[in-house]
Design a protein around this nucleic acid. Structure first.
Lengths: 155, 155
DNA sequence: ATAATATTAGTCAACATTAGTCAAGAACAC
DNA sequence: GTGTTCTTGACTAATGTTGACTAATATTAT
């Protein structure tokens, strides 16, 4: 508890609120001012301490009335399984291999048949076709990982 | 929640009326005056929150007795529903507008909540982020259209 | 009828107000 | 010393607000 840096302190402050209220909504500049740091430090704190692996989902809006909202979500018990698929996907993934990932999700019961079909529609070659095969594989990987991260929690 | 901007408040006001009466007809200057904003802000609210992607059709008339009428359209009644969304998506689509498309699919009953969330995960900025905004918008459009075409033939 | 005037809404660009990204340097842990 | 984490600020992006100018339609005067 001694020797806390300011990021830790801001983290504690937010988690204290979240201990009682499921979600917290802040104005970035206000919190930055309150703790006497530059605004972008709030982004740093959120990026390093409120990840989906930790069980938090973050939304924000810019402009007048803008906000950052951190929501505590209920993680499912399939985390190791999702982790293994995320590393299987990696930075890029072929269409063929991506089919296996979707099939694994289906067979594990993480998604049903229509959800599987929607994912397949999102990553097939009609959907992702920039003309550069490696770029396509990278985009396909990012989409799959984003979907996998979504499947970590109850929504 | 507490810190809403005035555009959100006007949006809520109009949607509250629309929740009960299918259409709402306003005099622009009157609403602007009621919320203490310049008249053109009403156009901003309508342009950003009552688009066809959101399921609204807007008509207006200038001159004496002029009005703006916002009508909520029943997309399911439209046999060309998917077609109209495909053309709304076009060659490229912003993240903001793509949210509206997914919401329309959900509200029309074409997809359920988990399917909607999966689609959102597939097109959010974690999933599609090449560094080139126009490229991202084109990829997002292709993915959405691929999913829309899938939904056309399913069920 | 036509022209002038009044009464509405539409467009657009400037400005304001928020948050996000990124990279450099500082501090820290080993 | 080296590698990681933290801190900072310049630059970018998204969204909202405002007002000057334009366009359409209705009403009134001739």
């Amino acid at each position: 508890m001694e020797n806390q840096n300011i990021s830790d302190i801001i983290e504690s402050y937010l988690k204290q609120i979240l201990a009682e209220s499921q979600q917290v909504e802040i104005r970035r500049a206000e919190i930055a001012n309150q703790f006497n740091v530059v605004p972008s430090q709030i982004n740093y704190v959120i990026k390093t301490r409120f990840t989906i692996q930790d069980g938090y989902v973050v939304q924000s809006k810019r402009g007048g009335g803008g906000y950052i909202r951190i929501e505590k979500v209920k993680l499912l018990d399939n985390l190791d399984f999702i982790d293994s698929l995320v590393s299987a996907v990696g930075d890029q993934i072929s269409r063929h291999d991506s089919l296996s990932v979707v099939r694994s999700l289906f067979e594990a019961g993480a998604i049903n048949r229509s959800e599987a079909n929607i994912i397949l529609a999102a990553i097939n070659k009609d959907a992702i076709n920039t003309g550069d095969r490696q770029a396509d594989e990278q985009i396909r990987a990012q989409i799959l990982i984003s979907i996998l991260n979504h499947l970590r929690y109850e929504s």
